[in-house]
Every structure is written in structure tokens, then in C-alpha cells.
Design a protein around this nucleic acid. Structure first.
Lengths: 251, 251
DNA sequence: TATTCCGATAGTGAC
DNA sequence: GTCACTATCGGAATGAG
């Protein structure tokens, strides 16, 4: 059964540093950040709340149990995950720049109906290009517009909504969310329907390849202009060119 | 589309001898006997009515169209197939004896809902052990007790039944027969349910292997007794031993 | 919605 | 109920002193 409770085992470690470096990315007093063992995108991490006297594993079983717990503790727990996730996102964006020369979206959120025990916040890049993404459930579970992937900000907003709304959302009914995973494959970037997984994966890869090409194009453009500026003795052109490059960011 | 009408093409040949020997087994003035291209048993042939001015291909499209045709012509057509099938069965039984040392059932019949154009009578040995038998539809379509495989004798009896019964049977409604192909896998020899196709195939093979072993045992027994008789000068024992071997036939 | 393995099931294309 | 190919779907096991 250890495969179902592996995350709980990690989160229960008194010394997270004993976890292998292939598993553990970092930790704080209240959270663990681990590499997703089967990444569904170029960057894919999990952030787990650590088990402690104040945070028993029973309360941390999943998002539903956390939301049914003491509301203030729940909010604190999720905020802890958030603060770590935001730091992590910065690190991911650094690596995006180093490796790919550009940044793209990083999503933070929970699966409405998880299958592994212990709450885990997914921190995942929006490309969804990775070998471990193999079937419709994988894809739909991360589709940012489908509803199964619950964005962290949305979940945090439940706490500030009416009690009635909080209660409704906190139910996380299987019957509501599970069917979403069987929905047709629709590209989360251009909304084009895809016939099957191989087609979808090729399609997503081509979106990503275009992004990479675009970033390369801009890098070359910037380099070109920089060289022209260096060669030019006319200091007056500088400002106009800088403005032109800044505009490219939004194109 | 030639794959759908391949049998009609064969049956329309004015000179069947031009068919390759890998296809044609034999022919008469009114029928062709060909090797099933994907045999579902150790012996598996198809007998086709030949197209002629008296027997247009439109009438011979399938069993339903034949039964909707002139009733006397239909009966004659099917009787022609039968007389060839009976001869063929004799030849198959000869080869069974030569190759395996024993004979086993040979079925003659039609699929209630065929997918290849042109009437074809299956002549197939009851082992149903063959590499080309790959899925549930294959097996159920030849299961001798399921109802999808229409035994030739049963079909011929329809002609001598009441007109009402003939009309009913002649409908060959898809909605009645198609669902049978999805039935659970049940061994046609011992009625044991089989979980899946690999299991069924192993099971059928073991039935056949037992038959072969049994036949070998008898052959050895007969040989032994013959040798004893040859060595014995006592002629009185002969009759008793012959009777004993005859009894083994039914065991 | 952990993966992996096996097998059944479904759609397609075949000229 | 043609085949062969691809992909999806569905269940079961998964560990292990």
C-alpha cells in the first residue's frame, strides 16, 4: 500500500533532509517541496504540508479534509503552501530564462479529486509537454480552464466568501469533478479540439516550439540592435531603439 | 473496396481454375470450394455458389437475399452447397486420420450476419484452435450452440417448416444476432466460462491435446493387441479383443 | 484523479 | 460478423522482514 501513502510518509519525516535528493527539492518548517515523480510538464513540483502535533496527518489527508478542519488552521496551512509556491515559482522562472531564454506561466493548484493520500499543491509550468503525460486523465487533470484543477488563488478566495459558498465548494464532490476528466481533449492555449493524445501532444509541443522560436527571434533582435548601437557613434538613436525592443515584449 | 467483394469476384470467374492454388481447393459446375484465408480451426473451408445466368450475384449476396429469392432455387442452391460440403467433409476426415490418427466433428453452416459479400458456407473442424482466431467475435461467430452460427441442416429444415416459420427465420435480423457475438466466452465443449481470449485458446488447445493423446493411446492399444494376436496361436481370444477395442470408441 | 500491465473495446482505413 | 493498426478504456496489482 505504500504507493498510495508515499506522500504522507514524506510529510511525516522529522528530518526531511534524509529524503533522497532525487525526491526532495527543499523544505521549510511547515512544508516540503518535492519533484513530481512523473512530471506532466517541463517543470512540475509538489508542495506538501508537514505533519506535526498542530497538523495531524488525518487533517492533511486531502483538500476536502483540510477544508473540513479548523478554518483558521486550514487557511494558515494553505497560505504556507502558497508562500513556498511563490518562492518556488521565482526559482522556476530563473531556470526558464537560463535554459530557454524566456518565461511562461506557472500554475499553482490542487486536484479536486486526488488519488494519492496527503494534500499536495501542484506547481507546474503551463506547457504540459512531458513524456509522463500519457492519457486524457493526465491532461484534463491539469487543464487550467476545465475545473478539475483548482487554482490556489481560487481556493484561497473561498475562505473570504460567504460561509454558504465556502461550504459548497469545500464539499469537493467526486460526482461533480470526476466526469470532467473524461471530457474531450481541448487545447488549453487555443481551444482547438484534439482527436487523441498523440495528436494533442504534438499540438502542445508545437505551441511550445513556437514560443521558443519567438523568444530566440527577440533575443537575436535585441543582440543585433545592441551591436548596431555599439558600432554607432550617434548617441541620439539609443532611446528610440530601447523603446522599440520594450514594445516587442507584448507582441 | 475489393476486400468486401472478394468472394463475389471468385464466384464470378468463368474459369475457376485461373484462381491461385492457395485460394482454390476445388470446384463443381455450381460451386467453388476455397481455403479460408484466415482459418479459425485446423480445417476451415468456404463453399460458394457460382454466379451464372440462373444464379445472379444479386440473389447470392448473402443468406438473407438467397432466402428472399425464389424458394425452389434457393433450396437447390443450398443443397448444391451441401452436397459439396459432405464430400469435402469426407476428405477432411481422411486427412484427420492421416495427420492426427483420429476424426472429430466438422461443422457446416452460415454466419447469420456475414460481413463479406456473397453467400459462403463455412466448413470448419470443431477444434477452433488456430492462430487467426483472435477475438470474441471470431469465437462466438463459430460457437456451435450460441445461435450466430446457423447449421446447414437447420437452415434446410426451414424450407420444410410452415411458411410462417420460414418467413420468420429468413429475416435474419441483425438486432437478433449481432448481440450474440458479445456474449461471454463459454467453451463449446465443456461449457466452462473463460475470462478472456488467451485463456480460452489455452483451454481449447488442451481439449484438443487430450483428444490427440487419447487417440494415440487407443492406437497403441490396438497395435499391442494386434501384436499379441499375431504372436498368439490361440484363435479363440480374437473375438473378445476385437469387441473390447470397439467399446473404447465411445469412451 | 499514483503507475504499470494486460486485455477488451472502438474507430479507421484498406483500393 | 474481413484484417491490421492505433488508441482508448477497464480492471488488477503494486509492497515486502
Amino acid at each position: 500500500m505504500s504507493f498510495l501513502t508515499i506522500l504522507r510518509q514524506y510529510a511525516s519525516k522529522t528530518d526531511p533532509a534524509t529524503l533522497p535528493p532525487t525526491v526532495l527539492f527543499s523544505h521549510s518548517t511547515t512544508t516540503l517541496t518535492i519533484f513530481d515523480a512523473y512530471p506532466k510538464a517541463t517543470f512540475h513540483f509538489l508542495i506538501l504540508p508537514r505533519v506535526s502535533p498542530n497538523c495531524p496527518s488525518s487533517a492533511l489527508a486531502n483538500l476536502k479534509s483540510v477544508l473540513a478542519w479548523d478554518k483558521d488552521k486550514a487557511k494558515q496551512c494553505i497560505r504556507d503552501l502558497q508562500s513556498n509556491a511563490l518562492e518556488l515559482r521565482d526559482k522556476i522562472e530563473e531556470e526558464m530564462m537560463e535554459k530557454y531564454g524566456f518565461k511562461w506561466d506557472v500554475w499553482m493548484g490542487f486536484h479536486a479529486v486526488p488519488s494519492l493520500e496527503h494534500l499536495h499543491l501542484h506547481v507546474i509550468s503551463s506547457d504540459l509537454c512531458a513524456p509522463a503525460l500519457k492519457n486524457k486523465k493526465h491532461y484534463n487533470s491539469f487543464h487550467s480552464k476545465l475545473g478539475f484543477f483548482l487554482h490556489l488563488n481560487d481556493v484561497l478566495e473561498w475562505f473570504d466568501a460567504t460561509e454558504s459558498h465556502f461550504k459548497t465548494m469545500a464539499k469537493l464532490e467526486k460526482s461533480k469533478y470526476e466526469p470532467l476528466l473524461k471530457d474531450d481533449l481541448v487545447c488549453h492555449r487555443c481551444y482547438e479540439r484534439q482527436k487523441n493524445i498523440p495528436t494533442l501532444k504534438t499540438h502542445l509541443q508545437s505551441h511550445f516550439d513556437k514560443d521558443v522560436q519567438k523568444a530566440k527571434g527577440k533575443a537575436i533582435l535585441i543582440l543585433k540592435r545592441k551591436r548596431e548601437d555599439d558600432e554607432s557613434s550617434d548617441g541620439r538613436k539609443d532611446q528610440a531603439k530601447k523603446a522599440s525592443v520594450d514594445q516587442d515584449k507584448d507582441s
